[in-house]
Design a protein around this nucleic acid. Structure first.
Length: 669
DNA sequence: CTGTCGTTTATTTTT
DNA sequence: TAAACGACAG
């Protein structure tokens, strides 16, 4: 066992893996074997007689949690029964989960002391925006003048800083406005017995702070806490970790301040920069050896990131070859850029490279279009990571809204979504009446409105809708989840509705794909068919499904058979690697973005993003910029990105646009 | 309530 | 450029 744990590790990695007690911070450069370090250290704990159930491992994504689970199991050579995996205290495996999913589990047990019911709902981002909008309309704040999404983001900012509506700053008009919406927002959530993502964390912290007895219970369960991607933790997550590890002080954090690219999402880089201040006795390990990239790529990355001021100083190095020089190419415009990229892919692919070996990275999604067009015209298959997410598709959200409303008749957000889907002649008029009723059970409110009387047409329609919901609710109590979903689709005539949508010129998205998505939803749901019956305190398959779905916003992974070029934003590329990486749009104003140019803090974040993007490449790195680019319809001329200038000249080849010789001239003339 | 037409606005987004 | 939103007429 111990052989297996230390085999193939370098000295620094071994040092980290052997650091079992007390606070430990591991700074892990890109490609330095971070996951290996985390998993082997966890395995080492277990082989040193720490019980798996006493270990908690926190990640940011489900994907990271799954991967770690898989690798630890593999390392320990045990096949754990997967159905036990999500059990709260599991004698076989450490609890490995996202911050949000772990807090969800805690709150399912403890939330009653905050006056919420245990079966609370979790709102997704769209639900939140919808709620803020509704509140702003209710309290008569002009949503045109004050962007609800910005208000929501301010509210979310306050929540991550653990500030309650009462304590929200009210020193100017705008902050007063935010505070007013915030207060209503929390009120409405409570009425719906719903939590947003921020609440999952902050409520847990709140309980831990006010109830030392409860906190201690969890401290005794999780005597060892591990945190992945520590540079991305926000203030509330920081507090959570701090509280949990206060008693035993066995806190192991791993991350890389140079790869912190989510400050716009309230990641607080000070958490990692100040770790030593928080824990003066902390052991610090630096993983600086890179196993991924060539020397040239590492030199470029290192030189770029060195221009940042606030960082933990470190030097990436590698034993790999120097490899190819970094190719920096100027083209006439974005079409030329796209053709250049695709032409290079074609050439390399003809030399036997798999299309899976290529990634094209860009700063904004809008840039994908030109690349896609070029790929299509060359007949190369591709897939885009990110973009429209599965659970954000209209048809999925519609069906989920039905399920949520069936599950929780107080869910006003879902009710609002489905009341007229498919169109049944109900809308604002009914919504108004419902909110006047001040009755949190909306099925009840509907009955009252029917009694009060409406226009005959509407009354009938509302009756039919209410009966539909009642019928579905009855079914929910007895049927398996997939059966229930099939009934929702059937009884609402949802497929017919989709068909009618696809006939109007607006809905150019094809019907086939949407039906396919519904089938995919059924596939996901199938896993919950076996889950508990609605007896006792066991959750129903439906409730379990809804709770987990809310925390699972990624696309269900399709089994990739065909080879494809990968397109994605630089943000989405974090954690991935490809033999050949193209970074397009290396221009001032685009990357770094205009707004980052005037703000040193934001510029540093852009530079870290550049560092992340560069270090995705294993063998070949190609950067492109254009003389002219059309942005929002007008053509602009940008200077090459300063980041290009920061790459040492001796590791790069520069190719300038050659009018008359470059292929794009032909397109241009 | 529904569809159409003009107006507005424009990152990144693990949960 | 284009998608998304809100105002207004049917």
């Amino acid at each position: 066992m111990s052989d297996k744990i230390f085999n193939g590790l370098n000295d620094k990695q071994i040092e980290a893996v052997k650091a079992l007690k007390g606070p430990v911070l591991v700074i892990s450069g890109p490609g330095s074997g971070k996951t290996k370090c985390l998993t082997h250290r966890t395995a080492n704990l277990i082989s040193n007689s720490v019980r798996p159930e006493n270990i908690l491992c926190l990640t940011f994504t489900n994907k990271a949690a799954d991967e770690m689970q898989e690798r630890i199991g593999h390392l320990l050579g045990r096949k754990y029964p997967t159905n036990l995996r999500w059990q709260f205290i599991n004698p076989y495996v450490p609890l490995i989960g996202t911050f949000h999913s772990v807090c969800l589990k805690i709150l399912r047990r403890e939330i009653e002391i905050l006056g919420y019911g245990r079966n609370f709902n979790v709102l997704d981002g769209d639900d939140q925006t919808a709620l803020v909008k509704r509140i702003m309309n209710d309290i008569e704040i002009d949503t045109k003048r004050y962007n609800p999404r910005i208000i929501l983001s301010k509210i979310s900012g306050l929540k991550t800083e653990l500030i309650s509506p009462d304590n929200a700053p009210k020193n100017d008009f705008y902050s007063q406005l935010v505070a007013r919406v915030f207060s209503q927002y929390q009120h409405q959530l409570k009425k719906m017995n719903a939590l947003d993502f921020d609440d999952l964390i902050s409520f847990t912290v709140q309980i831990f702070k006010t109830r030392p007895d409860i906190l201690e219970k969890y401290q005794d369960i999780w005597q060892y806490v591990l945190v992945d991607e520590y540079q991305d933790t926000s203030h509330d997550q920081y507090q959570l970790i701090k509280l949990l590890s206060q008693k035993n002080k066995n806190i192991f954090c791993i991350g890389d301040d140079a790869q912190s690219i989510y400050q716009f999402r309230r990641a607080d880089i000070r958490n990692i920069l100040n770790f030593q201040k928080d824990y003066p006795e902390a052991e610090i390990v630096m993983l600086e050896q890179n196993y991924r990239s060539t020397k040239n790529i590492i030199a470029a990355a290192q030189e770029v990131i060195s221009k940042n001021k606030s960082q933990i100083s470190k030097e990436l190095w590698t034993e790999n070859d120097h490899g190819h020089k970094i190719l920096i190419k100027e083209t006439l415009n974005e079409r030329g850029e796209a053709n250049f990229v695709v032409q290079n892919i074609v050439n390399l692919a003809n030399n036997g490279k798999s299309l899976n070996d290529f990634a094209v990275l860009y700063r904004t999604h809008a840039q994908s279009r030109a690349i896609e067009e070029a790929l299509i015209s060359h007949g190369l298959p591709y897939h885009i990571v990110g973009g429209i997410k599965f659970y954000e598709r209209k048809e999925i959200k519609d069906i989920l809204a039905f399920l949520k409303f069936i599950n929780n008749p107080a869910d006003a957000i879902s009710f609002e979504r489905i009341i007229n889907i498919p169109p049944r002649g109900l809308g604002n008029a009914v919504l108004e009446k419902v909110s006047q009723k001040n009755e949190s059970n909306i099925v009840e409110a509907m009955a009252q409105i029917i009694d009060d009387g409406l226009a005959p047409k509407q009354t009938n329609s509302l009756k039919a809708f209410r009966n539909l919901i009642l019928d579905l609710r009855n079914r929910a109590a007895t049927e398996k989840l997939t059966q229930l979903i099939k009934h929702v689709i059937e009884k609402t005539k949802y497929e017919e509705y989709l068909k009618s949508l696809s006939e109007t010129k607006l809905a150019y998205e094809n019907l086939e794909e949407r039906s396919e998505n519904l089938r995919e939803l059924l596939t996901v749901a199938k896993k919950y068919d076996a889950a508990g019956n609605p007896s006792q305190d066991e959750e129903t398959g439906l409730a379990k499904f809804l709770a987990e779905i809310a925390l699972l916003q990624e696309n269900p992974v399709a089994d990739e058979v065909a080879q494809k070029v990968t397109l994605m934003t630089m943000h989405a590329s974090k954690g991935l690697e490809f033999p050949n990486v193209f970074i397009v749009g290396m221009e001032e104003g685009l990357f770094p973005q205009n707004r980052a140019i005037i703000d040193p803090k934001e510029l540093e974040e852009e530079r870290r993003l550049c560092y992340v993007a560069i270090t995705r490449a294993k063998e070949r790195l190609i950067l492109t910029h254009t003389k002219y680019r059309s942005i929002y319809g007008s053509t602009e001329s940008n200077l090459p990105s300063r980041f290009i200038g920061e790459i040492p000249a001796h590791v790069a080849d520069y190719k300038f646009f050659d009018f008359g010789n470059d292929e794009e001239t032909i397109n241009y003339l």
